[in-house]
Computed example of a mutant assay.
Amino acid sequence: MKLQLLAVLALATPLFFTTAVKADNPQDLQKLLTTGECIDCNLRGANLSSAHLIGADLRGANLQNANLSGANLEGADLTGANLTGANLTSAYITNVNLKQANLNNANLTRAKIYDSNVYQASMNNLTITDAEIYHTGIGVGGEDAEIPDWE
């Protein structure tokens, strides 16, 4: 009986500790996780929760509806990336290049956003509840809101 229980536990244990990492293109996800670079990749719907993406090159990547909650994106290059509907709750976003990125409907609740470039980024319907935003052109305003020119 003990041997059977031990066998069941040995087989089931990995199921309890495996993080669901998925994306529309698993090869692109694996490339990002092994090299830190994934230019023009399809990472739509990827679960990158709590990922360490420090200095990652994600220029032009499709991260639509990706889960980046708690991720560390320090120094990442997301120029032209599609982050529509992405979950960036509690993400660490410092010195990140978001130039011309699409952040429409992104959730930045409790995110820490410092010194990041959002020049020409699309930022409609952002959720920025309790976010810390310093030296970054994100704010509450309408069409007449002043956005700094980072060029």
Rank of each mutant, 00 (worst) to 15 (best):
N105W: 08
D144L: 08
T84G: 05
L78A: 06
I128E: 02
N65P: 00
L83H: 09
Q120A: 15
N95T: 08
M123R: 04
D77F: 00
S69L: 08
K2V: 12
T129P: 00
K31P: 01
N124D: 12
E143G: 15
D40S: 15
S90M: 10
M1Q: 07
I128W: 00
A20G: 06
V8L: 15
R110G: 05
D24K: 04
I113K: 00
L9D: 10
K112Y: 13
N62Y: 01
K112S: 10
R44V: 10
S49I: 13
T34F: 10
T89C: 06
G80I: 03
F16N: 07
T129E: 03
S49T: 09
G85E: 00
N25A: 10
Q100Y: 11
K99T: 06
A131W: 11
N107A: 07
I93K: 00
A131Y: 04
S50F: 13
V8I: 10
L58I: 11
K2C: 02
W150Q: 06
A20E: 04
A7S: 13
S116I: 06
T109G: 01
G85I: 00
L32K: 01
L29M: 15
T35Y: 13
N102M: 02
N42G: 10
T34E: 14
F17K: 00
V96W: 10
M1D: 13
G36W: 01
E132S: 12
N67V: 08
D40C: 01
N117G: 01
S116C: 14
N97F: 06
A71M: 09
H52V: 13
E37S: 15
Q30H: 13
L3H: 12
V21L: 10
A101F: 07
A101K: 07
N72F: 02
N125T: 04
Q27E: 15
G70Y: 07
N65A: 08
A101V: 04
L88P: 03
N82R: 09
A81L: 05
N102R: 03
R59V: 09
Q120M: 14
N87E: 10
A7H: 14
H135K: 09
L29K: 06
L88H: 04
A10C: 12
C38K: 10
T129S: 02
T94Q: 14
N62D: 14
N67F: 07
S122K: 12
D144K: 11
L15C: 14
A56V: 08
A81H: 06
W150E: 03
L83I: 10
T89Q: 05
N124F: 07
I138E: 03
T35S: 14
I147R: 02
A131P: 09
L88K: 03
V8E: 15
T94D: 11
G70M: 06
A106S: 14
V96L: 07
A66M: 04
E151D: 13
A121L: 03
A20R: 05
D40M: 03
I133Q: 02
L98F: 07
I128R: 00
I128C: 11
T13V: 15
A81C: 05
W150N: 07
D24M: 04
A51T: 05
N95I: 00
N117Y: 01
S50Q: 13
W150I: 00
Q27Y: 09
T136Y: 02
N25S: 12
S49V: 10
T18R: 06
L83A: 13
T13C: 13
N125R: 07
D130L: 12
A131C: 09
N105H: 12
H135R: 09
